[in-house]
C-alpha cells in the first residue's frame, strides 16, 4: 500500500467507526448508536434545563424579595451542585422512573401493562435526571449574568414607561445572554460526559433501536439508548474479551473528548456572537 492508499484506508476506517453499528458484542464495528444517543440526550437535557434554570434565576434575582428565605434557596442550589451524581441517578430512578413513569403507564398505557412503557429507564428520564443535576450550574451562572447588567440599562427602559417584564425581556435578558450561554455550556459539558446516573435510568450496552427514527411519533422518549461514556465503561471493563476491545475503548474515549470540546466550542462561538451583538455600556 502506498501513502494514498493508506490514507484512504485510514479515513474509511474512521468513517465506518462513527457511522456503523457495533458487532461482536461491541468489540467490532462502529459506535454510531452511542454517538447518536449522547447527542440526543444532551439536546433533550439542554431543552429541559434551559427554561427551568433561567426562569428560576430570573425569579430569584428580579422578583423575589431578598430575605432569609431566598438566601436559603440560593445556598441550597449551590449545595445541589456538589451532590454526587449517582445520588441524582437514585433520585431519577425512584421519583421519575418508578413513581412518575408508573403513574403515566397506569393512566395512558394501561393496555400494554404489565410490560412498562415509561415505567422503566428511558432517554426522557435520563435527560431529566441530567437536567436536575445541571440546573444549579445554569441558575448560578444566570443569576450572576443578571446581576452584572448595568443599572443604567434597566433605568433607561423603566424611565420610558417600560413595565418590569418588558424591561427584563427586552433589555436585561439580551444583555445577560452571553452569561446565560456560559452557564449552558458548563451544564452541557458536565451532562454529556456523565455516566453514573445514566446507569440507573436507562442507558444500555446495546439498544435495539435509536431514540429517533422514521416511525411515528419519530422521537421515542421511552426508548433505552446507548451512550459514549457508558460504552467506554462497558467495553473496557464489562466485555468478556477486554483485550480485543482495547482499541475500541481508546478510540471511543478520544471521540467523547472531541465531542465535548466541539460542543463547548460551538457554544462559545454562539456566546461571542451574542456578546458582540448585545454589548452594553460601551461608553
Amino acid at each position: 500500500m502506498n501513502l494514498a492508499n493508506k490514507a484512504v484506508f485510514f479515513l474509511r476506517g474512521i468513517a465506518s467507526f462513527v457511522s456503523q453499528e457495533p458487532r461482536e458484542a461491541n468489540t467490532e464495528g462502529g459506535i454510531f448508536p452511542a454517538i447518536f444517543g449522547t447527542f440526543i440526550l444532551t439536546l433533550l437535557m439542554s431543552v429541559a434545563v434551559m427554561p427551568f434554570g433561567v426562569l428560576a434565576a430570573i425569579y430569584l434575582r428580579e422578583y423575589a424579595r431578598q430575605n432569609w428565605f431566598t438566601q436559603t434557596v440560593r445556598i441550597s442550589i449551590n449545595n445541589l451542585a456538589g451532590v454526587p451524581s449517582i445520588v441524582f441517578g437514585v433520585f431519577g430512578l425512584g421519583f421519575l422512573v418508578y413513581f412518575t413513569g408508573s403513574t403515566i403507564d397506569k393512566l395512558f398505557f394501561s393496555n400494554s401493562l404489565p410490560a412498562p412503557t415509561f415505567g422503566t429507564g428511558g432517554i426522557l428520564w435520563a435527560a431529566l435526571t441530567l437536567a436536575l443535576m445541571t440546573v444549579p450550574v445554569v441558575i448560578v451562572a444566570t443569576e450572576e449574568a443578571l446581576a452584572a447588567v448595568p443599572r443604567g440599562a434597566r433605568e433607561g427602559s423603566l424611565a420610558l414607561g417600560g413595565s418590569k417584564w418588558q424591561t427584563i425581556y427586552r433589555v436585561v435578558i439580551p444583555a445577560a445572554a452571553p452569561g446565560i450561554m456560559t452557564g449552558l455550556v458548563l451544564a452541557m459539558a458536565r451532562g454529556a460526559g456523565e455516566v453514573a446516573p445514566l446507569m440507573l435510568v436507562g442507558v444500555v450496552k446495546l439498544a435495539p433501536a435509536l431514540p429517533v427514527d422514521g416511525l411515528f411519533p419519530f422521537l421515542h422518549l421511552d426508548r433505552k439508548f446507548m451512550h459514549l461514556g457508558f460504552h467506554i465503561y462497558d467495553l473496557g471493563f464489562q466485555s468478556p474479551d477486554s483485550d480485543a476491545a482495547q482499541p475500541m475503548v481508546f478510540a471511543t474515549t478520544l471521540f467523547l473528548i472531541a465531542l465535548v470540546v466541539l460542543l463547548n466550542l460551538g457554544a462559545i462561538a454562539i456566546r461571542e456572537r451574542l456578546r458582540r451583538k448585545y454589548a452594553v455600556g460601551a461608553f
Binding site: G152, A153, E155, G156, V280, G281
Partner: peptide
C-alpha cells in the same frame, strides 16, 4: 415624565 441620565444608556 421622561428622563435623561448622567451616563448615556442607549440600548444595545
Amino acid at each position: 415624565v421622561g428622563m435623561v441620565f448622567q451616563k448615556s444608556n442607549p440600548f444595545p
